[in-house]
Design a protein around this nucleic acid. Sequence first.
DNA 1: GCATAACCGACCTCTTCGGTAGGATTTAGT
DNA 2: ACTAAATCCTACCGAAGAGGTCGGTTATGC
Lengths: 157, 157
Amino acid sequence: MLFSTKAEYGVRLMVELGRQPGSAPISLNTVAEAERLPLSYLEHLVAKLRKAGLVTSTRGAHGGYQLAMPAEQITMDAVVEALEGQIAPMECFHDSPEGKVLCSHESDGDQACSTKLLWMRVQGGVTKALAGTTLAELVEFSTHSEERRTAALGSAA
Amino acid sequence: MLFSTKAEYGVRLMVELGRQPGSAPISLNTVAEAERLPLSYLEHLVAKLRKAGLVTSTRGAHGGYQLAMPAEQITMDAVVEALEGQIAPMECFHDSPEGKVLCSHESDGDQACSTKLLWMRVQGGVTKALAGTTLAELVEFSTHSEERRTAALGSAA
DNA sequence: GCATAACCGACCTCTTCGGTAGGATTTAGT
DNA sequence: ACTAAATCCTACCGAAGAGGTCGGTTATGC
């Protein structure tokens, strides 16, 4: 498995927040029941999203969470990275401060190990897919999906 | 991490086999020393590659492993899948017998969960990168890399 | 028959995953 | 001021997988 359920649950959580039209915060309990996910586990995940600056929280009664910015501006690479940690295909891969991709096997400065070409391409494919998808797209996708389901149920009855 | 060292070590093993020009089998010990990887662990990995039909083995003295087909015909999706299991971004993803991608949350036949769009794109990016890379490319890449290193050392001396 | 090597299965340690538990803190409403 | 609702925080826990190790069995060339 490329990703764990941390990413799955976290994305579902973000989509759920994105579906809410108003400006009132949504409690985690509401999200947990809507998506049938364990509340206590979601607490851990939403903490990562908050620390990454993707959601804001308001404490106390009638508190909850909201997106920190419009869903159109949230790309999924930020969401997944907040939940799963840095997106690297292999342990020896890490981003250097200048944004270059390094492989810790390159002890001689410029040398690349025999697998670097492959992992570079894989990482490129993944980050391109993640960065090219906005939360708004997923919200719209799920909304349409639900409309189709409701329509199908209606015509079946 | 998207992949574990199983894929890393396994690919390095395959590259090492691909670098050998002759038709004589290479012992695992030779590979292990060349790549500085634990022999006993490589045994487990090469077993997976053999079961997947990517390498052939000859037992007994002077035995070893060889590529089951020319390196140009070996694409890395087969190698990585043999080592890591099915390439799916999320646990709920699995290939149906007809080759379609399914999500086990789609209990209503056609419905998709809100994250499917995202994971479809990610999986597409990964499989495209893996299937678009042949073992021959990696062999050539590593050979050139080594030539550059040798040249650099020579000029420095 | 002996060295070499593939094969096989059991085991072991460590980390992560997915989740639970319990409490502390903040806030809205009464 | 009290209370209910919520976030927040830390610790823990069982299961699974990662990354090996080990000992032994089988097959083969010399």
